[in-house]
């Protein structure tokens, strides 16, 4: 029996297809904003895991990894690459995994929950007739946001509690999610004379490891957020709380500038000169763009025929290694290959 975290890790190692080093999953989980990690998200279809554990320490990661080695799930080679064992593949067949949406939330789910927590804490105190209290959320921005929210929604009328309760119940009830996961979410909230439960306390009640608990918590937040976005008209209050939570433009700042110039008709060479950036950097940006923007047309760089050839090669040789693909489709440059891979099986944006 593997713990959640290990299952997720195994899943990621599997998706990397043994073509990256053992450090790649670590950077992915922490959501590293480097060209390599971001492009790998596209190439290996790892959107769901991106940045779900921004605070994961290398020490903790290495500990889990050494369990994998001891349990013979994985062989680590001297050059830092790895191989999954038969035992690992057996496990992958039967494993049930949590569903994340890391790519779209990138840690912002915690902002949503902080807002919700402070709103609930405020309303609970208001209900008890306590007009002043010490907020658990210390972040000034969150506090200001909540103050505005309460005013805009006329909390003095005393109706807001009921309305919010209804939205929370309705939105959560219809999500296909274990009650256990809903408990984890709701018991992290606090109110008047009712401090939230600590991870240790929930873990004791639900008999789960704390790390797993937190992963379920994050996955549940992602599901909840997605549910809210699917039926915005049903949840007017929650809709306010998800303001700016979902990443609309997943491009990094620099890539975004390149994209703007590109869409304004500049060629890659012109952009490179104008921005004083190396051509290879501009290529990185274009790959990021191909990954993220459904409007971006890969065929202005690669013919449809060649795209098909690359995708066929990926299947035939079961690899996404550029070197191998370049041998099979030699007429394409590495840049073109990366564009195709980035585009390949793009998830719905």
């Amino acid at each position: 029996m593997l713990f959640q975290f290990q299952q997720i890790l195994l899943q990621i190692f599997h998706k990397f297809n043994q073509e990256r080093t053992i450090s790649a999953p670590f950077h992915l989980l922490r959501g590293k904003r480097s060209g390599q990690t971001v492009q790998d998200v596209g190439i290996y279809q790892l959107h769901s895991y991106f940045g779900i554990l921004p605070k994961l320490s290398r020490k903790k990661y290495d500990e889990e990894l050494s369990i994998f080695v001891n349990e013979q799930f994985i062989l680590i080679k001297e050059d830092g690459y790895y191989e999954l064992t038969e035992k690992a593949f057996e496990h992958l067949k039967k494993s049930q995994e949590l569903v994340f949406d890391g790519w779209h939330y990138r840690g912002n789910e915690h902002v949503f929950f902080a807002r919700l927590s402070l709103v609930v804490q405020s309303l609970s105190h208001h209900l008890a007739g306590k007009m002043s209290f010490i907020p658990y959320q210390k972040d000034e921005q969150i506090q200001q946001w909540v103050r505005m929210f309460l005013k805009t929604n006329h909390y003095q009328d005393g109706q807001l509690q009921q309305k919010l309760l209804k939205e929370i119940l309705n939105s959560l009830e219809h999500i296909a999610m274990e009650d256990r996961a809903k408990n984890i979410l709701i018991y992290r909230l606090s109110g008047y004379n009712a401090a939230g439960f600590t991870w240790q306390q929930i873990s004791f009640e639900e008999n789960l490891k704390e790390m797993d608990l937190q992963l379920i918590y994050i996955a549940s937040l992602h599901s909840w957020l997605n549910a809210i976005f699917l039926q915005v008209e049903e949840f007017p209050l929650l809709l306010q709380m998800v303001e700016n939570i979902r990443v609309k433009n997943p491009l990094s700042g620099s890539a975004f500038q390149t994209a703007e110039l590109f869409f304004n008709g500049h060629s890659m060479e012109q952009i490179s000169r104008k921005r004083g950036l190396k051509m290879s950097t501009i290529e990185d940006h274009m790959v990021e763009l191909a990954m993220n923007d459904p409007q971006f047309d890969v065929e202005q760089f690669v013919s449809n025929e060649d795209v098909q050839a690359v995708l066929a090669a990926v299947d035939d040789y079961n690899t996404r290694k550029l070197k191998v693909l370049h041998e099979v489709v030699p007429q394409l440059s590495y840049f073109q290959l990366r564009l195709v891979l980035a585009r390949g099986e793009r998830v719905e944006a």
Partner: peptide, 16 residues
């Protein structure tokens, strides 16, 4: 018995 119950909990927080 204080088995966790999310509905009861959120009701307690918001409507008392």
């Amino acid at each position: 018995s204080k088995e966790l119950n999310w509905k009861r909990r959120i009701e307690q927080l918001l409507i008392g």
